[in-house]
């Protein structure tokens, strides 16, 4: 059974149809990337998966059951910073446990372990504005993972970071993912990032009325190093093959914009 399934999902905002007839299955433990030109409704699909947005037509199944309201199994890493600026790194990470009824001391104790896991063991008392962009992303990642989601939704989480920090974070993500293999739906416009991270890359057509137009399994061996894997012939072959399809959509998006 798939962990998450889109069944003929369409989302319209008034007259504007963002995505139409999207059907997509995510197996448990699978890392799937959605790539597509800007404005193709990638984030819309994530919001539907998170339960923040109800589809206009079609349905989303979570472990075989229709999703109603917020997705209880999902953790969502937003593109923008979403951690609370008025809480320290430690309290931000502890917060999801407090929401679940744990007392603060216990929540903080467990949060400390997660901060160490994402390499921020030395910054528990720092406020977000005192941390760099990459560090804030790590806090966000720990905050999402501490709640133990089965499904991880990621909306171009590293797009605002510089290239080095970005590769560091991608490797970090793979390392954490390797530990317990959550199902991941990763949205990006960066094809290289998508290939380097995923088990499967899904290409979306240019919006409006965007839908999947191609699926590519990525048989690269794991564990991977995102910087090194980019240099392998297999990676280049996949890149060429997917880009062939994606390029046309990017052109169309440009022509439309």
């Amino acid at each position: 059974m798939s962990l998450l399934e889109f069944r003929q999902v369409s989302v319209a905002f008034g007259d504007y149809v963002a995505v139409e007839g999207v059907t997509l299955r995510l197996a448990p433990g699978e890392f799937v990337s959605l790539v597509g030109p800007t404005g193709c409704g990638k984030s819309t699909l994530l919001n539907v998966a998170a339960g923040l947005l109800a589809p206009s037509r079609g349905e989303v199944l979570l472990e075989g059951k229709p999703l109603k309201g917020l997705n209880p199994l999902a953790g969502y890493l937003f593109q923008q910073d979403a951690i609370l600026p008025w809480k320290t790194a430690l309290d931000n990470v502890a917060l999801p446990l407090v929401f679940r009824g744990l007392p603060w001391p216990e929540a903080r104790r467990r949060a400390m372990a997660w901060l160490e896991k994402v390499g921020l063991g030395r910054f528990p008392r720092h406020f977000p504005h005192q941390l760099s962009g990459g560090m804030r992303k790590r806090v966000g990642l720990a905050q999402v993972l501490i709640a133990g989601p089965k499904l991880l939704l990621m909306d171009e989480p590293f797009s605002a970071l510089d290239v080095q920090t970005r590769q560091l974070m991608e490797n970090e993500l793979l390392r954490l993912w390797q530990e317990d293999r959550k199902t991941v739906l990763f949205v990006t416009h960066d094809l290289e990032e998508a290939i380097a991270l995923s088990d499967r890359v899904v290409v979306l057509s240019a919006g409006p009325r965007s839908r999947p137009i191609g699926e590519f399994p990525i048989p690269l061996p794991r564990p991977r190093d995102v910087a090194e894997v980019r240099l392998t012939p297999e990676f280049l072959r996949l890149h060429r093959e997917i880009w062939e399809l994606l390029r046309g959509e990017v052109m169309r998006a440009h022509a439309g914009a």
Binding site: G75, L84, P85
Partner: peptide
Amino acid sequence: IVLQNARLL
């Protein structure tokens, strides 16, 4: 965004 994040958490 902060609000949605908190609700999802």
